[in-house]
């Protein structure tokens, strides 16, 4: 610190009128950080799944290859990616302030998400009905909880979308609504990212 400049005529001690930060930047960065945190939550679940994905941990119950169906998973992949793309396109309509476009995109995203979730819940319900529920074995516990955690995230996304469908016509594209729409875009895209990992790891490598 020897070379600290001495103050001179140009030295300013105060910054009146300093603009500060932008709400949208702060909110999107904050939400991004939340998602990294959430990503570690899924990472821990994947680690647990990896440990429990052995015949030992199946405890005489079914193992991965007996319960996953990669072809059906592919339809799910198309549904969730379609949903994410629909929502992302809604934010393209946002650029021009096109309310109808944004809301249409959101509704399409919701429909496709429900299709995706329908497949998933159907799988889990079938397994449970066969006596292979989450309490059957360590392996099935890991499988169910991984899939359910992702599904619960999707359900929260759907609630969030419903809220936005009310707020857009009510408030228009004010700063807060826009920030929420952008964060929801990240959140929704993130669900597809997680699904890609689940699909490859559970549905393909497990098959």
């Amino acid at each position: 610190m020897a070379h600290q400049a001495a103050p001179d005529a140009n030295t300013r001690l105060f910054a009146p009128g300093f603009a500060g930060h932008s709400q949208i930047s702060a909110r999107t960065l904050g939400f991004w950080l939340y998602m990294l945190s959430d990503a570690l939550l899924f990472t821990a679940l994947f680690a647990a799944y990896a440990v429990l994905d052995t015949p030992m941990n199946a405890a005489g119950g079914p193992i991965a290859s007996q319960i996953v169906n990669p072809v059906e998973g592919f339809w799910q992949t198309i549904a969730i990616l379609g949903s994410v793309t629909a929502y992302s396109l809604a934010t393209v309509a946002l650029k021009t302030g096109n309310r109808a476009g944004v809301m249409l995109g959101i509704v399409a995203a919701m429909v496709l998400a429900v299709v995706f979730l329908g497949f998933g819940f159907n799988d889990l319900a079938t397994l449970t009905a066969q006596g292979n529920g989450m309490d059957r074995s360590g392996y099935l516990s890991a499988y169910f909880v991984l899939i359910l955690t992702h599904a619960i995230h999707m359900l929260f996304g759907l609630i969030w979308m419903l809220v936005m469908l009310v707020q857009i016509p009510r408030d228009g594209f004010n700063e807060m609504v826009v920030a929420r729409l952008l964060n929801l875009r990240m959140f929704w895209q993130f669900q597809a990212t997680v699904w890609v990992c689940v699909y490859i790891y559970v549905y393909m490598i497990g098959a």
Binding site: S22, S25, G82, S88, L182
Partner: peptide
């Protein structure tokens, strides 16, 4: 707080992305 009075739709976070990119991503 800056940004408060500017148009939220002009924010770079809104401007980014585009239909072609998203479709390519899909």
């Amino acid at each position: 707080m800056a940004g408060s009075h500017s148009d939220p739709l002009a924010h770079p976070e809104v401007r980014m992305g585009g239909a072609m990119r998203y479709i390519a991503g899909f």
